Amino acid sequence: TEKQERAIEYIRRLGYSEEEARRILKKANGNPDLAKEIARRIG
């Protein structure tokens, strides 16, 4: 989804690889607090 793409872009800007960014997002899917934090940061 567009939100996922924005989140991946944001995480990659922090210096993670695409693969790492996707792994972090997968974790965020099972972790509402982390997901909220990422969403808050990407606006």
Rank of each mutant, 00 (worst) to 15 (best):
T1G: 10
T1N: 13
T1D: 13
T1P: 10
T1A: 13
T1L: 14
T1I: 14
E2P: 10
E2M: 05
E2F: 02
E2G: 10
K3N: 13
K3D: 15
K3R: 13
K3F: 09
K3E: 15
Q4I: 15
Q4G: 08
Q4L: 14
Q4Y: 09
Q4N: 09
E5K: 14
E5L: 13
E5I: 13
E5W: 09
E5Y: 08
E5A: 12
E5F: 08
E5N: 12
E5T: 09
R6S: 14
R6Y: 08
R6P: 06
R6M: 14
R6N: 13
A7N: 03
A7T: 10
A7F: 07
A7E: 04
A7P: 02
A7C: 09
A7M: 07
A7Q: 03
A7V: 11
A7W: 07
A7I: 11
I8D: 03
I8G: 01
I8L: 14
I8Q: 02
I8F: 07
I8R: 03
I8V: 10
E9A: 08
E9R: 09
E9I: 06
E9L: 06
E9Q: 08
E9C: 10
E9K: 07
E9H: 06
Y10C: 09
Y10D: 14
Y10F: 09
Y10W: 07
Y10H: 12
I11K: 00
I11D: 00
I11N: 00
I11T: 00
I11H: 00
I11L: 12
I11C: 04
I11V: 02
I11S: 00
I11Y: 03
I11P: 01
R12Y: 03
R12W: 03
R12F: 03
R12D: 01
R12A: 05
R12M: 15
R13Q: 15
R13W: 13
R13T: 15
R13N: 15
R13F: 12
R13G: 15
L14R: 02
L14N: 01
L14Y: 04
L14H: 03
L14V: 02
L14K: 03
L14D: 00
G15Y: 00
G15M: 01
G15S: 01
G15I: 00
G15W: 00
G15F: 01
G15K: 01
Y16W: 07
Y16N: 02
Y16D: 00
Y16Q: 01
Y16E: 00
Y16R: 02
Y16V: 03
Y16C: 05
Y16H: 05
Y16P: 00
Y16F: 15
S17R: 03
S17M: 03
S17N: 08
S17L: 03
E18Q: 07
E18S: 06
E18M: 08
E18W: 07
E18Y: 09
E18I: 08
E18A: 07
E18K: 06
E18T: 07
E18P: 06
E18F: 06
E19P: 07
E19N: 09
E19F: 10
E19I: 09
E20I: 07
E20K: 04
E20G: 05
E20C: 11
E20W: 06
E20V: 08
A21T: 04
A21M: 03
A21N: 00
A21H: 00
A21R: 00
A21F: 01
A21C: 03
R22C: 08
R22T: 06
R22I: 10
R22K: 10
R22P: 00
R22N: 07
R23H: 13
R23E: 15
R23N: 13
R23F: 10
R23A: 14
R23W: 14
R23M: 14
R23L: 14
R23I: 13
I24D: 00
I24G: 00
I24E: 00
I24W: 03
I24P: 00
I24V: 04
I24C: 05
L25S: 01
L25K: 00
L25T: 01
L25N: 01
L25W: 05
K26W: 09
K26S: 11
K26H: 11
K26A: 14
K26T: 11
K26Q: 14
K26D: 13
K26Y: 09
K27S: 13
K27P: 01
K27Y: 15
K27E: 15
A28K: 01
A28Y: 04
A28H: 03
A28L: 04
A28P: 01
A28V: 06
N29Y: 09
N29D: 10
N29S: 08
N29G: 14
G30L: 06
G30E: 04
N31H: 08
N31F: 05
N31R: 07
N31V: 06
N31Y: 05
N31I: 07
N31C: 06
P32E: 08
P32D: 05
P32S: 09
P32V: 12
P32F: 09
P32Q: 05
P32L: 11
D33Q: 11
D33Y: 08
D33P: 04
D33K: 12
D33C: 06
D33V: 10
D33I: 09
D33F: 07
L34S: 05
L34H: 07
L34T: 07
L34Y: 07
L34N: 05
L34F: 07
L34E: 06
A35K: 02
A35M: 04
A35V: 03
A35R: 02
A35I: 04
A35P: 01
A35L: 04
K36D: 03
K36C: 10
K36V: 14
E37F: 05
E37C: 07
I38L: 10
I38K: 03
I38N: 04
A39Q: 02
A39M: 03
A39E: 02
R40T: 09
R40H: 14
R40P: 03
R40L: 12
R40V: 10
R40K: 11
R40W: 05
R41V: 10
R41W: 06
R41N: 12
R41C: 12
R41A: 12
R41K: 13
I42E: 13
I42F: 10
I42H: 14
I42Q: 14
I42T: 11
I42A: 12
I42L: 15
I42V: 11
G43Y: 12
G43L: 15
